Simulated scan of single mutants.
Amino acid sequence: MVKTKLTVISNFIFLGFIHYPKAESPIFELHWLMYLVTLLGNIILISITILDSCLHTPMYFLLSNLSFLDIWYTSSVLTVMLADFISGKNTISFPGCATQMSLAMGSTECVLLSMIAYDRYVAISNPWKYPIIMNKKVCVQVAAGSWVTGSLTTLVETMSVLHQPLCGNSIIDHFTCEILAVLKLVCVGTSKVQLITLVISVFLLPVSVLLICISHVFILCNILRITSVDGRSKAISTCAAHLTVVGLSSGTCLSTYLKPSAVGSQEIDKFIALVYAGLTSMLNPIIYSLRNKEVKAAVKKLLSRNALCALLIHSTK
């Protein structure tokens, strides 16, 4: 089956934002900036988590996995879109499309965000038991489980779509090889594939959102017991920021994968995908990590250490 499709379709053509020619340049410039900020923020977080022993904690271990995932996903999506805009070709090979689909591991993000919320709940509600509950072995198992879950669900969805006959139609009404956009090229019944996608989405998205909300409800209950007004307001602000990012990320996924197929337009789905690929990946390190005192202190320590090394090297010359 795959060999037949490869002989019929060797390349796919992205329509992108062809219906909005005036918006293409602003979209390119905005998402190029977002991609650079995403790379910078996530690389900084991963680097300081590795280099600073004070950040060798379960929370920052999970956040480092989330940062790596953000770099992974945005690089697979935005670099292709930005390169297509520069070259003007708007094409991708069949293997490239299959690879891009297999790299979109939203399930991994769902599991990681759920466990980060649970980690904060345990740290605030049971600080004495926290080192026992969230020990190193548990953290490694959680991280490995999130990546395995994402890999398996993405593989199932990708194979279920690409094993369908595409009938020679190679035009994808999207800027990336998004599963539902590629599924529209299939010329036979897609109810079985849609059911697989729906089951995976229903199992992961609402469940993860529910766990995150429950965790934050318990966290807020503990925050309200804080006597310091400043401490309480800062904690509530942090929780609100976390829920905003989760709501933005989960809302875009829910609106794409769980809405009825007849509702909305493909153009809306494209802009929703842009928000998910660009904005949420950029905000994750800013909201979850770079605002924290520990991270700020680690960055200052790293910068001062590098400045001192540079000064010593310069003085020895």
Rank of each mutant, 00 (worst) to 15 (best):
M1V: 14
I18V: 11
I18S: 00
H19K: 13
H19P: 05
P21F: 09
P21E: 11
S25G: 01
F28P: 02
F28W: 04
E29P: 05
H31L: 03
H31W: 00
H31T: 08
W32Y: 14
T38Y: 04
I43H: 01
I48F: 01
T49V: 15
T49N: 10
S53M: 05
C54K: 12
L55G: 13
T57A: 07
L62I: 13
L66V: 13
S67E: 01
I71N: 04
W72Q: 00
Y73Q: 11
Y73N: 02
V77C: 06
V80A: 10
M81S: 04
D84S: 11
D84P: 03
I86G: 06
K89P: 06
K89I: 10
T91G: 04
F94P: 00
G96C: 06
C97T: 09
T99H: 05
A104T: 12
A104P: 06
E109G: 03
C110V: 00
L113N: 04
S114L: 03
A117M: 00
A117T: 06
D119Y: 07
V122Y: 08
A123Q: 05
S125Q: 05
K129G: 09
C139Y: 02
C139K: 10
A143E: 08
W147C: 02
S151K: 01
T158M: 15
S160A: 14
L162K: 01
P165C: 00
G168F: 01
I172G: 02
I172Q: 03
D173K: 05
D173M: 02
H174K: 08
F175S: 04
A181I: 12
V182N: 11
L185D: 12
S191T: 15
S191K: 12
K192A: 14
L198P: 11
P206D: 07
P206K: 05
V209S: 03
H216K: 08
L220H: 09
L220G: 02
S228Y: 08
D230E: 09
R232F: 11
S233M: 00
A235S: 13
I236E: 05
S237T: 13
L243M: 05
L243R: 08
V246K: 00
L248A: 09
S249G: 02
S250I: 07
T252K: 09
T256H: 06
Y257E: 04
Y257W: 04
S261R: 05
A262M: 03
V263E: 10
V263F: 11
F271H: 11
A273Y: 06
Y276W: 12
T280Q: 01
T280D: 04
S281N: 15
M282L: 15
P285H: 10
I286H: 01
R291C: 14
N292S: 13
N292T: 15
K293D: 13
E294Q: 13
E294K: 02
V295D: 06
K296T: 15
K301D: 10
L302E: 13
L302Q: 12
L302K: 03
L303R: 07
S304N: 14
N306I: 12
H314Q: 15
K317D: 15
